[in-house]
Simulated assay, not measured.
Amino acid sequence: MKDTKGKNDTAKRQGRPVSRADFFPRLVAMQRFAHARNFAVFKTNNSGLPSRRKLTCIIDNFASDGDVAASEILDHYSQALLDHLEISSLPLLWNGVEASQTAETTDFAGFVKHIKPNVLPVSGVAFPVRLGGMGNGYTVFVANYFDLTSEAVVDLHDRSHQLMMDLLVLDERRSAPDEVLSSREISCLQLAGDGLVSEEVAEKLRLSVHTVNAYLAAATMKLDSVNRIQAIAKAIRLGYIA
Rank of each mutant, 00 (worst) to 15 (best):
Leu92Glu: 08
Val154Glu: 12
Ala152Trp: 04
Asp158Lys: 10
Leu163His: 07
His210Asp: 10
Lys116Tyr: 08
Asn144Ser: 12
Asn144Ala: 11
Glu86Ala: 14
Pro128Cys: 03
Asn144Val: 12
Ser198Met: 09
Gly193Glu: 06
Ala80Cys: 06
Glu151Leu: 11
Ser123Ile: 12
Tyr215Trp: 04
Trp94Gly: 15
Asp158Tyr: 11
Gln162Glu: 15
Glu86Tyr: 10
Glu151Met: 08
Leu82Tyr: 05
Ser175Asn: 14
Phe108His: 13
Ala217Gln: 13
Asn144Gly: 14
Phe127Met: 01
Lys116Met: 12
Thr105Lys: 12
Val97Arg: 08
Thr105Leu: 15
Thr211Ile: 12
Val209Gln: 06
Gly132Asp: 11
Leu189Arg: 15
Leu191Asn: 04
Ala202Gln: 00
His210Gln: 11
Tyr145Cys: 03
Leu216Glu: 00
Leu189Tyr: 15
Pro91Trp: 14
Ala99Pro: 13
Thr211Pro: 02
Ala217Glu: 11
Leu170His: 06
Met164Leu: 14
Ala217Ser: 15
Ala99Arg: 15
Val129Ile: 02
Leu131Gln: 05
Val169Gly: 01
Asn95Pro: 00
Gly195Cys: 02
Leu167Glu: 06
Leu168Cys: 08
Ala109Leu: 07
Gly193Tyr: 06
Leu168Asn: 09
Ile186Cys: 02
Ala192Asp: 01
Val201Gln: 00
Glu200Cys: 03
Ile115Glu: 04
Val122Ala: 01
Thr149Asn: 04
Ser187Tyr: 00
Glu203Trp: 02
Lys204Gln: 09
Gln190Ser: 09
Ala214Gly: 04
Ser150Cys: 13
Ala218Cys: 07
Ile87Ala: 10
Pro121Lys: 14
Ser198Arg: 05
Val209Asp: 07
Leu82Glu: 07
Leu207His: 02
Asn118Cys: 08
Leu168Glu: 08
Gly96Asn: 05
Leu92Trp: 09
Phe146Lys: 08
Leu131Asn: 03
Ser182Gln: 01
Glu200Tyr: 03
Glu98Asp: 07
Val125Ala: 04
Gln162Ser: 15
Glu179Phe: 03
Ala218Glu: 03
Gly193Val: 01
Asp194Gly: 02
Gln190Arg: 05
Phe108Glu: 10
Arg173Trp: 06
Arg206Lys: 13
Ala109Met: 06
Val112His: 06
Val197Phe: 04
Leu168Val: 14
Leu196Phe: 14
Gln162Pro: 02
Asn95Trp: 01
His161Asn: 08
Thr102Pro: 00
Asn144Met: 12
Leu93Ile: 09
His114Gly: 15
Gly193Met: 06
Thr102Lys: 05
Glu86Gln: 15
Ser123Asn: 04
Leu163Tyr: 11
His210Ala: 11
Gln101His: 11
Gly135Arg: 04
Arg206Glu: 09
Val212Gly: 01
His157Tyr: 05
Ala214His: 10
Leu191Thr: 06
Asp166Val: 02
Pro91Met: 11
Gly110His: 11
Ala214Gln: 09
His157Asp: 03
Tyr138Phe: 09
Leu196Pro: 08
Ala80Met: 10
Asp155Ile: 11
Ala176Ser: 12
Cys188Ile: 02
Ala152Asn: 10
Leu167Arg: 03
Met165Arg: 00
Ser88Arg: 12
Val122Ile: 07
Leu191Ala: 13
Glu185Tyr: 01
His157Val: 02
His161Tyr: 15
Arg130Thr: 14
Leu168Gly: 05
Leu93Ala: 06
Ser183Asn: 03
Gly132Asn: 12
Met134Trp: 13
Glu179Asn: 05
Ser198Thr: 13
Glu151Thr: 11
Thr139Gln: 02
Arg206Phe: 08
Ala103Gly: 01
